[in-house]
Amino acid sequence: MHLLKLTFKYIIFLLKEPNYFEQYRTFLLSITENFNQIFDERFTRELLRIYPIRLLVNIGRSIYFVNIQENLSVLDHHTADVGKNAITHNLSAFDNFQTFSIPRVDRLIKPFSSIELLTSNSSILVIGPRSEDDLLCLLGYGFKSEKIKGLDLISYSPWVDLGDMHKMPYEDNSWDAVIVGWVFNYSKAPANAAQEIIRVAKNGAIIAVGIEYNPLTNEEIEKVYGYSIDGTRTQSVAEILSFFGEYVDDVFFSHDIVAKQKDKQSELMVIFSLKK
């Protein structure tokens, strides 16, 4: 955006010059000669911070992997801690691009990316991305693709492993950071999932959790949507932190529900470090 503003200012300046065409020729020549420096890899990656651009990339890649390569897979066996309709609910999102990719992860990744303990070389596990949107968003904030991996009950992407967050296929102390994006509500035992996250995360790892807050009961949700996830209803940031217990160290970011939001659907978010 800053580059565009400077460009328009320069064009206005040139239009006021008597020898405008010579100035314009020089300007275009300088842009051409310095194209790689101006529109470098960082510029291209940062475009992924813009949701409509990221959505187009996400949809294009999903069409290739799901419809052309037919790579969509579902985890055959998962623990009893997974909500009964978790897989069905997430598969239904592939029928509607509005639910297939939801931009709420930006709210969590923006503060996550500002934590100075993280670098572009940090290894990051994203639990429950559904599509590649969360991973593309991380790319937009400068994290390296080879250092990012997703884990989900369903996957079409070589970037996302099939697995259950209650029993993950990773060694102890594997990750510098773990993003748990709106998946604890799909769990009957989020404390068990938290213990597994603690196992695979390194000491001092950054943990970012987002959960949907919904004032409706499971019965009311079932009336609206025809089914419920049969997971856990989390009501506060304090409840999220309680899943991790004594392993919570420094809390860097917290977005809780205040009294005037209690009757509205909203987001619970918290980012903290682990002490093991």
Rank of each mutant, 00 (worst) to 15 (best):
E219K: 11
K202D: 10
L48M: 12
K147I: 06
A191Q: 02
T232Y: 00
H78R: 15
S73M: 15
T119M: 13
L153S: 04
D230V: 01
E219M: 03
L48A: 10
R199Y: 01
G140S: 00
I63F: 06
A259G: 10
D133I: 08
F243V: 03
R45K: 14
L75T: 10
N185Q: 14
V178R: 14
V248W: 03
K262A: 01
D106C: 11
A86H: 02
L136N: 04
F243W: 02
Y170M: 10
R199M: 04
D95A: 07
K147V: 05
I102L: 06
N96I: 02
G204M: 04
S113T: 00
Y247R: 15
I102R: 14
S92V: 00
Q195K: 13
I68Y: 06
K223Y: 00
D250N: 15
R54L: 10
A191D: 07
P18Y: 04
A193K: 07
I109E: 08
G128E: 01
L139K: 10
R107N: 10
D76I: 03
K262G: 08
R199C: 06
L56Y: 12
L138W: 01
V180Y: 03
G210R: 05
A205P: 09
D106I: 14
N34C: 01
G150P: 07
R42S: 13
F97I: 14
N173W: 00
Y170K: 13
H166C: 13
G128C: 00
I68Q: 11
L6S: 13
C137W: 05
S73T: 09
T99K: 08
I87L: 02
W182G: 09
N34G: 08
R54A: 07
F253C: 02
I229L: 15
A191C: 02
E246T: 12
S92A: 09
P111S: 04
T99C: 04
F8Q: 15
L72T: 09
L91G: 05
K149V: 12
F8M: 15
F253I: 02
F21Q: 13
Y64S: 00
G128I: 01
I38K: 05
I127K: 04
T119W: 06
N185W: 05
S242F: 01
E246A: 14
A208F: 00
T32H: 15
S113V: 00
S113D: 03
D161Y: 09
G226E: 07
Q37C: 11
K110N: 11
P190A: 04
R61H: 09
Y20C: 14
F65M: 14
I11W: 04
W182L: 10
D161H: 10
D106E: 13
I50P: 05
S30I: 10
L216W: 02
L151Q: 04
L274E: 07
N67W: 03
W175E: 14
E41I: 01
I198T: 13
E212L: 12
W159V: 07
L3F: 14
P52C: 02
L135C: 14
A189K: 14
K202L: 06
L138F: 02
C137E: 13
